[in-house]
Structure formats: structure tokens, C-alpha cells
Design a binder for these strands. Structure first.
Lengths: 187, 187
DNA sequence: GGGCGCATGTAATGAGTTACATGATTGA
DNA sequence: TCAATCATGTAACTCATTACATGCGCCC
């Protein structure tokens, strides 16, 4: 929740915007950084306004639906800075969804495990490729940094998975037992 | 939720256990792989039993509280395999909590940003160290694999953060403006 | 006798998602 | 005329967490 609040405040700090605008930007440019959905953003904006971190004024252009344009307040800036300092200074231990699967690799015959891991590898590579062809310097801000970070992790994942598949393949040619190597430590 | 179900089924596939036992093992050995809490596990076991994936029998030892020992059923094995194939073959794009902070690095004076990132780096390194001194081959299963994966990602994070701090430091000596480098792509 | 371990949960709460509602405008 | 875009939300639901309840046995 704090992350989402930080994101909204950070975006409003750069420029006053209405909810739709924020949501569009998030959906089109920040899908890799956050997975916040639209109603969540609207609800958060409401709460932030009630707590005084942001303030809204109604705006209307022609006969279009009225917009609620939010501006960050001084109080909001303080909150923003506090949240920013918190997130930057700490490293939440990440829990990777797919890791549970790895634990039970040996429940499948080796050749099937290999086939599945190769599918996973293909997806990881597709994600790397997708990131790499993003034009860079999206806007003045440090989005690039976040994207770069993602790319680094994805490449590490790629390398490890590739190596894991190789390890499993050598085992395939020697014996004919179920999967899971003896975990020769990475590095 | 699927991950948690997969985990419980996978553990029961190896050995019939009661809830307390499962929870203890998760808390002591799998904290890095999952963050499922006890009441969640109990509730999930309930639901799995109702759906027929597992079956329980009551057991009592002396005057201790009675235990509900769960065993996986044939139906549960099928479910387990389906979930396992799903997780192994796909790569969920991960959303890293701390990445939002990176986006707004330039909202802080460079020297403070550096100080905070160094704190983050220290935490990452502490996590790497903690992982590296885990004894390995926990049990017959592929936990080691999941741990190894974590270690690989953490080391990649370490390297990237270290490099980011360096990049920011050279910028510090040259100019005196706020943070955020031009994101020279990480290899 | 006081606290920890064993073993099960329940109740209240919260955060977030999905699916839906509304209603005008613009382009094919 | 039909669909998409603009712009705001609401309602129902799911998932998970936190805090609490219970009660016996064991060890210091």
C-alpha cells in the first residue's frame, strides 16, 4: 500500500493530474513497476485527499466528463519524502512466486521437467526482449532506473535458468532417474 | 493462492503431516520461499479437505491436543501435478516493491540518496550472507534449488546496487545537482 | 507457579480485484 | 450506428493478516 501511495504522490509531485491521467500512465508505462488497478488508484486518491495529502479541484472541458485534478499539498510532500526514504533505504526480502515449483522439480520425469523449464526460460527471454526495446528516457524521471533494475534481475534469471537446464541435461544423459540436481551452488 | 496450495500439497506428497508440523517447517525452513502465515495454512488445509484433495484422520498422543493428520489423495496428486506444471512452465513478471522508490531518486539531494542506497545495499548483503550460511541439502527435496535461485537474484541485486552507487558518486564529484543518472544500461 | 511448547482454530479487519454502471463524445 | 475513448466511481467478493481464545503438559 505504501508503495502505491508513494507512486501516486510522486507522480503528482511532478505534475498535477486527474485520476484517469494517472491510471493511463501507469497502465501504459509502469506495468512492470506496479500492478495497481484503476479502482484501487481512485480509492487511494480519495483517501489521500481526505487525509490532506492532496487537494482536488474540478475541471471541465466542453461537454466531457468533469475531471478531478489533484495537486499535492505541503503535507503530502512530507509524506512523500518519508515514504521515499523508507523504501529507498530498505530491501524487502522478495518472495518469488515461481520458486515453490522448483522445490518439487523431482516430482516430474526429467524430460518433462526440462520441457517445462524451457518454456519458462522462453518467457523470461521474451520479457527481457520486451524491456530492451523500450525507448529509454521515458520522461524526465528515473523510470529508466527502475526498468534497468528489472532488466538486470531478468537477465540474472535467464542465466541461472539456462545453467540449470544444462545441469539437468547432463544428468539426463548419465542416469535415468527423476529430476533435481545436487544444487551445485550458483557462482 | 495457487502457490500456497502447491506448497502444502507438495509437502504432503512427501509425507503425511498435521497442520502444526507443516507450519513449523515453513516457518523455520521456508521463510524465504513463502510468507504464508499459520491461520492461512489452516484455512487452506480445510478447503483442500473439503474439495477432496487431502484427507485427515485424528491422532492423539497421550494427553496432548489431538492432531489432524492430513494425507494427500489421488485427486490431490492430480491437482498437485497440474499446479506444478503451471508454475514451472511460466515466468510471472515480478513486481519488485522497492522499485517505485528508484523512480523518484532525484527528489532527494544526492548525498542523502547515496546514504539511503548504501543502507539498502547493506541489507541486501546481509540477506546474501544469511543465505550462504544455510547448511544446504535441507532434506531430500529441491529446497536447495529455490534457495539457490534466491541467492542468484540477491547477488545480481548487490552488483547492480553497488554499480549504481558508484555511478552516482562520480556524478557527485563533478556537479552538485540532485540525483538520478542517465541510466547507462546495465550491460 | 509461570511461561513456553503443542495444536487447533475464530473473528475482525484490511487491502485489492473483478465486474458493473453511467453518460457524453468522437471516429469508422 | 456501433464501438471506443473519456472520466468517474460502486458493490460484491476474495484472499490474507492480526489479534485473540483454548487448554493441557513440561521444565525451571
Amino acid at each position: 500500500m505504501d508503495e502505491r501511495t508513494l507512486l501516486l504522490l510522486g507522480m503528482l509531485r511532478i505534475e498535477s493530474q486527474h485520476g484517469y491521467q494517472l491510471n493511463e500512465f501507469i497502465e501504459h508505462n509502469l506495468a512492470r513497476v506496479t500492478d495497481m488497478k484503476k479502482p484501487t488508484a481512485y480509492a487511494l486518491l480519495d483517501r489521500l485527499e481526505q487525509s490532506g495529502a492532496i487537494a482536488s479541484r474540478l475541471e471541465q472541458e466542453g461537454n466531457r466528463p468533469p475531471r478531478k485534478v489533484y495537486a499535492i499539498t505541503e503535507q503530502g510532500r512530507q509524506l512523500f519524502l518519508r515514504l521515499l526514504r523508507e523504501t529507498l533505504s530498505s530491501a524487502e526480502p522478495y518472495v518469488i512466486a515461481g520458486d515453490v515449483g522448483l522445490m518439487f522439480l523431482d516430482a516430474l520425469p526429467l524430460d518433462e521437467a526440462l520441457k517445462l523449464l524451457e518454456q519458462r526460460l522462453a518467457e523470461v527471454r521474451a520479457q527481457v526482449a520486451a524491456i530492451e526495446k523500450v525507448p529509454a528516457h521515458h520522461l524526465g524521471l528515473g523510470i529508466d532506473l527502475a526498468i534497468e533494475h528489472q532488466a538486470v534481475l531478468l537477465r540474472a534469471d535467464d542465466a541461472w535458468l539456462t545453467q540449470l537446464i544444462e545441469r539437468l541435461q547432463t544428468r539426463q544423459s548419465t542416469s535415468s532417474t527423476p529430476a533435481a540436481p545436487s544444487a551445485a551452488n550458483g557462482q
